[in-house]
Design a protein around this nucleic acid. Structure first.
Lengths: 199, 199
DNA sequence: CCAATAAAAGCACGACCGTTCGAATCAGGC
DNA sequence: GCCTGATTCGAACGGTCGTGCTTTTATTGG
């Protein structure tokens, strides 16, 4: 990895951390340059535009999420263990990297930030990544159906949607309200969701 | 109502509409002034600071929500009809006023915006209003328990949390993904949630 | 109708925004 | 160890941000 790629990478790591707290729109070239102790223009030249930076952050986040959440889940046995691993890691993946995401899951933070945004490359990317995430969940569910662990009548898309809703609710309780019961409730909801599709 | 209060009110209406789309942080004194066709300073003088404006917007939103969602729910019979009315109106309250909230429920939009924000008067207000909303749901659930419609063992706080999660998920699917199945899924999830507490 | 008061406008400010560009500095291949 | 290209920097740009003043205009009570 060349020097340029190296700084680009560490800039993205910092940008991801900041985005998880203030959103993709909240990050600032100047603020990022300060945190990295480099010049605005030097940092800027790696991305060409703020949109380019935002897109790069989302790509970087997707890569990290794949490595820290999805890959470990796919290593677990098909069906319930796999979906449970995904859920557990998802709730806490901000803490699993050598760096941290102080603002929790960025896919949650960013979702409502772009829900009413006009069409544009960043929104398109956000939507696509969220869809990819739902697709992954659906695939795992389908695997569980094939295994016979989950009912034939299970609707994978509905399950994925409901699972995402649980994570959104968890984020609300844990981060906004700082409710200590958040984790327990999320797991309860998850168990109930699983009960419904178990055969 | 004096002239000043009148303009203040219409500014808040516009500010609420904008906030539902771009968030409380996304609104701008200048942008608001343009939309109202008045000067920045004239508009500014009604609120004293941007924080003051943001707080006022949340108060205004709470008032509208009470009138358009909570009050109609409380007019419905206790128990299931009441909680169902709340849910239905909640999903669509952006369209119920003579003005519209083009960005949907502002309590949803704003939740993740402030979840990692440092303590401050606006965050405090947001948290308090969200808590009030959960309290209202809990009270309605307790009413249903008293009526005998809901199980004695029902946990009103957990129900309120789960209901909120459904709305968050609905917002995600409907507004970010623009999934036409969003409404149906939200109602399905709501029915399942009710099934669980019905006696 | 006029005076007292409230509301709105005009203007300027310092700070920060994203972006451009030319100059300085550095890295790696010969 | 130099040459070339990659990388970073410094300074500046036009804009917009929130906010403070002073002045002008509108409203209202007597």
């Amino acid at each position: 990895m060349t020097k340029g790629d190296e700084t680009r990478d560490s800039v993205l790591r910092e940008a991801l951390a900041q985005s998880s707290q203030v959103g993709l729109r909240g990050i600032t070239i100047g603020g990022l340059a300060d945190a990295m102790e480099m010049s605005k223009s030097g940092l800027f030249s790696h991305f060409g535009s703020k949109e380019g930076l935002q897109s790069a952050v989302m790509d970087y986040a997707a890569e990290a999420f794949t490595q820290l959440v999805i890959r470990p889940a796919l290593k677990a046995p098909r069906g319930e263990p796999r979906i449970r691993t995904l859920f557990d890691r998802w709730l806490g993946w901000g803490g699993y990297a050598d760096y941290a995401l102080p603002g929790g899951c960025i896919f949650v933070s960013v979702a409502s930030e772009f829900d009413d945004a006009p069409e544009g490359p960043v929104r398109t990317k956000v939507v696509q990544l969220e869809r990819d995430l739902l697709d992954t969940i659906e695939t795992i569910v389908r695997g569980g159906i094939t295994e016979g662990q989950f009912r034939e009548s299970t609707d994978p898309a509905a399950f994925a949607h409901d699972l995402l809703a649980i994570v959104l609710g968890y984020n609300f309780s844990a981060r906004l309200l700082r409710d200590p019961a958040a984790t327990g409730r999320a797991h309860d909801a998850f168990d109930r969701l699983l009960d419904h599709i178990r055969s």
